[in-house]
């Protein structure tokens, strides 16, 4: 068990956002978090990476409490991929990915760091953009660059906050394929907050469905993505079909 979240609570000012969240993440597992807007998906991911500090409960990384770890120690274990970033000042794709080496290097980047960055750029197929400015490339390419940065961190857990929500369907599939491949090949685990239930169903090993700051349902996609759960969590009437392996959701109307 790589990551264990026990009874985590979080509140913005006095508005509770997360209430007694408990979950676990296995080695080489891709865990999806789904739920309507405002369910607390992003907040949970940020709490796990201690970008936000959880009010109550514990988060254990290999049985070590992250609240007792330094930021740098956490950064070496977990990589965070934000939804988007806008940079005020220019930075090349290469330099952006090189920033992922921050937890491992001092002021000077060594030849080894450069090699690592090139290897990851190759892996994600974005080598040709290496010397372009980050702000000049398309949203899908930017998302890949952000994933590349997290990979450069050499973390064994990746946390992705809605990585596909700004992308066209081709890029959605590309990004999720890349993630799936990395999880399989490198033995990394990933937590992905995701809006698209069909993508979630197709790519994740296990799903958490959140609603109102609580975990509403958990398990494999088939058991979570049921007509009943979707109706109660989203207030949407939907058809759920199956291709024999994974459920597919066709939303019909709001109830």
């Amino acid at each position: 068990m790589k990551l264990r979240v026990n009874n985590v609570e979080f509140a913005y000012n006095s508005t509770p956002v997360l209430e007694s969240i408990s979950m676990e993440l296995d080695r080489s597992e891709m865990l999806g978090i789904v739920g309507p807007n405002g369910a607390g998906k992003s907040t949970l991911i940020r709490c796990v990476d201690r970008i936000l500090t959880a009010r109550g409960g514990t988060i254990l990384l290999d049985e070590n409490d992250i609240s007792k770890m330094t930021r740098m120690e956490i950064a070496r274990r977990m990589g965070y991929v934000p939804q988007t970033t806008t940079r005020v000042f220019p930075a090349t794709v290469f330099d952006t990915v090189l920033m992922g080496r921050r937890p491992h290097l001092g002021w000077k980047s060594s030849e080894e760091d450069v090699d690592k960055v090139l290897e990851i750029l190759e892996l994600l197929g974005i080598m040709e953009f290496a010397m372009r400015d980050f702000n000049e490339i398309s949203g899908g390419q930017q998302q890949k660059v952000l994933i590349a940065r997290a990979l450069a961190q050499e973390a064994d857990i990746l946390l992705l906050d809605e990585p596909t929500s700004n992308l066209d369907i081709r890029h959605q599939l590309e990004v999720m394929d890349i993630m799936k491949g990395i999880v399989r090949k490198k033995g990394i685990s990933a937590i992905v907050a995701i809006h698209d239930l069909n993508l979630a169903s197709r790519y994740t090993d296990r799903l958490l469905m959140m609603n109102g700051g609580r975990i509403f349902a958990a398990g494999d996609p088939e058991s979570v993505l049921t007509v009943e759960n979707i109706r109660r969590a989203y207030g949407v009437e939907a058809l759920v079909k199956s291709d024999g392996e994974r459920p597919y959701i066709i939303p019909v109307r709001p109830v």
């Binding site: 990476d49 990589g79 934000p82 930075a91 920033m99 992922g100 921050r102 937890p103 001092g106």
Partner: peptide
């Protein structure tokens, strides 16, 4: 270096240690 990382936003900078 840290200023570079902060250029990507506070959250990213925190996640990079």
């Amino acid at each position: 270096w840290d200023l570079n990382v902060m250029g990507a936003g506070d959250e990213t900078a925190k996640s990079l240690g």
